[in-house]
């Protein structure tokens, strides 16, 4: 069998003295689109942060493309979208300048070549921001910031795309753009792991959902179907989740 792209086994991690991951198993195979779901504080962001090395694992094993995380160096195969509400820093920067930073995984300390500039342009086109390339990121809306952050991850032409809440604070129009960009990436053969608060417009793309609760996997299978108010198109999910224990996990297997 082919090596999984991400293989996390028995992962434990803590933030401060609080255990956040308590034995998480997560396998993502080539070409899969996996959504990591869960309430606030369930550990879904921490899981992703530990996969990209931002949070150290206190136990368990992690392999990326079959290489143990400690020895993994091929970062140009990975595109990462951190959880952010803004792409701006303390100094003005254009959309193109921010997205070009994503290409550094390939150029490293070397110069930027034509192929690099073309890849940046292509990434901007994918998220519908090519016409804003010369604009300052300070002038963008929340959804456009997110599109820039995703273009930055796509600029490296990754095999694996890891996104932490890419839909947070994104207007519906941008959500649709992001969904179609993601669809193209998946059609190209990319593997995707994304943290989501709710499935939203990405639902048709998702092969598998992994639901975390209190740092443990409680569901790993087809994405749960949204019901009631949540199922409506355009439902804006702004309220915090109720006690997750009160709600049964809907696997969609019985419906």
């Amino acid at each position: 069998m082919e090596q999984p792209v991400i293989s996390l086994r028995g992962a434990t991690a803590s933030l401060g003295s609080r255990p956040v991951l308590r034995g998480v198993d997560l396998t993502v195979r080539r070409g899969e689109v996996v959504a990591l779901l869960g309430a606030n504080g369930s550990g879904k962001s921490t899981a992703v942060c530990s996969i990209v090395g931002q949070v150290p694992l206190t136990g368990g094993e992690l392999e990326l493309f079959g290489t143990p995380r400690r020895r993994f160096r091929q970062w140009s195969r990975v595109g990462y979208v951190p959880q952010r509400t803004t792409a701006a820093g303390g100094v003005p920067a254009t959309v193109r300048e921010v997205v070009s930073a994503g290409r550094l995984a390939r150029t490293k300390l070397g110069p930027s070549r034509r192929a690099d500039r073309e890849a940046v342009h292509k990434a901007l086109e994918l998220v519908g921001m090519a016409d804003r390339a010369k604009d300052s990121v300070d002038a963008l809306s929340g959804g456009q910031h997110q599109r820039v952050l995703i273009a930055r991850a796509l600029a490296v032409e990754p095999e694996l795309l890891i996104m932490d809440e890419p839909m947070a604070g994104v207007d519906l129009a941008s959500q649709e753009v992001l969904a179609s960009a993601l669809r193209e990436e998946v059609a190209r053969g990319a593997t995707v792991l994304l943290v989501l608060h709710e499935l939203g417009p990405l639902e048709p793309l998702i092969d598998r959902a992994v639901v975390l609760r209190d740092g443990c996997v409680v569901h790993d299978g087809p994405p749960p179907k949204a019901v009631g108010q949540h199922a409506l198109p355009g439902h804006d999910h702004v309220h915090p989740h109720a006690d997750p224990a009160a709600e049964p996990i809907r696997t969609g297997l019985l419906s």
Binding site: W75, S76, G90, A93, E97, V98, A101, L104, L109, S112
Partner: peptide, 19 residues
Amino acid sequence: RRQLFAICQDEEFARVTGL
């Protein structure tokens, strides 16, 4: 300048580029 821009703009992201 491109590398320093990246680490000063978003250090967390820059780490995942392998810089």
